[in-house]
Design a protein around this nucleic acid. Structure first.
Lengths: 317, 317
DNA sequence: ATCATTTACATAACTGATTATGCAATATTA
DNA sequence: TAATATTGCATAATCAGTTATGTAAATGAT
């Protein structure tokens, strides 16, 4: 049985490689059949030169999507075979302007006929198949340019992993996690302040007993993110979203988003009208997350934290 | 503008190569993302080992359609990474039976999850395209196995070239061609006999004036093939097909077939019932051609040629 | 005008594959 | 049972590409 049926589509790379090898192997035999002293790998270079006349090495490389050294080498080989002339006159002495030689131009004519034969053979293959390989490749090129395979896999990973993230309410066993996760990022960017320690050392007293909530994100039963909803003593705001912390090793699982959503949900349940938060603009991903959650920037409130340079609020309807 | 739009489908090899490169480039980044110390090229080997348990190097190579040295090298690398154990006990000391190590088996579990993510990403790509790349490749593999690309191009070439072959009646200007083409192949396989020279030196007298015909195949106005229809002085046969000669440099243009058809057509026109010919079985392509033209083997006629070891006839209705 | 930066290319080193080749171990055959 | 052929694998050489790096020429900034 064919191995690719078993591996599934992960092996698309290997499968592509094998087909490529088979096709290029035949390519050199085909040139032999036409008795032309020509290496298949020269084709793209030769083609652009016969189409566009003279060109520099780099221009060719860009057009055929090879690396520049690859084109340099090919031109050298073709030069040896007498098909191209390099170092044409040019004002810029760095540039190596190459063009087809007389022999090259003659060969172009021969190759045109051969090209036609190959074209017909390939089209015959297309006609025999129900899925058009040529078009399929073109579509992949287009789609991968819009979003790379890497990015696509990353998204799948995130999707799967975020499905395994569970948001639970605070329990005493998460006390150390709550402290450590917060200290980790704070100390990474700033100094830990007096106000921090007070809240982190005794969340029960400083947050829960005052009517707040703490949510913990579990991934495979390990607490990897926390976020608090703190009751505010302020006529303008009901709650503050604070102490949001996600372990760096758990990036990309949408944990922050899920915590934020849980916090907002809870605030809404308790009939809150507005939630407040403060942060620092160097924490770009966090700020983006807050915007995503619906928070908007505000100005002018007093804050006990030195590190705060942005304040936001969310109006709940 | 994309270069492949200009080149047309001859460049399918180059295009495949580029796509393969793009896919495999992302592959290694994907492994990195999952924090596994794993090279993409190991995948096929790793896969068969995790599926089938222990295997020899050659078995793996066959299954994943790599060369044996390639597998040897990969196994060595994977061995270095502690993923496989080689030289398992085996009666046959030439064989290197390899299997996954404990670490390898553990990794298989991790990779299973990653594989799933990639699979979904690839399927997403398929879903976004109208031409299914995976299926298209499978179809090409199947079609190319039935008939290689080389063979297909060869057929196109033949088709095109045979369209340029023109069969004309003998004229004095083809006298030397008639002689040379025949002498070329005869002297190549046998000795030129007395009977040959007589006919070749003076075709007008020995063939045409006796009511026979000679046809000449022109390719780009050059005579590259000849064939004679010789009137026989025999109650059983009207004509003999003889002096068929095609230049070796004109192989693959169906010149022999066209000449044969012209000769038969002429015989039919003249009301012939049976055509005779003699040849030698070492000339396999010629014999095959005669069968293709409808000739059948007969036995027992006398012949002036030493080299003749097969006799054939064609009954015309 | 001078100095730093960028550009254009060549060269070197590497990569993932291949074919060619050599050497044991095993199987086959006279 | 000895000679010969085949098998299984490792090693070496090659190939078509790549990235990294060096260098001279041109361009830009102060």
């Amino acid at each position: 049985m064919d191995i690719f049926q078993k591996t599934g589509k992960v092996a698309i790379g290997s499968r592509l490689r094998l087909l490529t090898a088979k096709v290029t192997e035949d390519a050199s035999k085909i040139y032999e059949m036409y008795h032309v002293d020509f290496s298949p790998k020269w084709f793209p270079v030769f083609f652009v030169l016969s189409e566009d006349g003279e060109k520099t090495i780099t221009e060719i490389a860009e057009q055929i999507r090879h690396s520049q050294p690859s084109v340099t080498k090919i031109i050298k080989e073709m030069s040896g075979a007498g098909l191209v002339k390099g170092n044409q006159k040019s004002d810029d002495k760095r540039r190596n302007v190459v063009g087809l030689s007389k022999k090259g131009t003659q060969l172009a004519e021969t190759l045109r006929i051969q090209t036609k034969d190959v074209e017909l053979a390939v089209e015959g293959l297309m006609a025999e198949s129900t899925n058009n390989l040529w078009e399929a490749i073109a579509e992949w090129e287009f789609l991968l340019q819009k979003k790379s395979l890497f990015k696509r896999v990353q998204e799948q990973k995130k999707l799967r992993e975020s499905a395994n993230v569970e948001i639970v309410e605070y329990e005493p066993k998460y006390k150390t996690a709550f402290k450590q996760l917060n200290e980790e990022w704070i100390s990474n960017y700033f100094e830990i302040e007096e106000t921090d320690s007070k809240a982190l050392d005794n969340p029960e007293k400083s947050i829960l007993e005052k009517g707040g909530e703490i949510f913990v994100a579990l991934y495979e039963n390990e607490p990897l993110g926390v976020c608090a909803l703190i009751k505010m003593d302020d006529p303008d705001y009901d709650f503050e979203l604070a102490k949001m912390a996600v372990s760096p090793k758990a990036q990309g699982k949408s944990i922050g988003l899920k915590l934020g959503q849980a916090v907002i949900e809870e605030a809404r349940k308790q009939g809150a009208k507005k939630i407040y938060l403060e942060s620092n603009t160097i924490l770009t991903p966090a700020i983006n997350l807050y915007y995503k959650l619906g928070f908007e920037k505000i100005v002018g409130r007093a804050t006990p934290y030195k590190r705060c340079n942005i304040q936001m609020e969310l109006r709940l309807k």
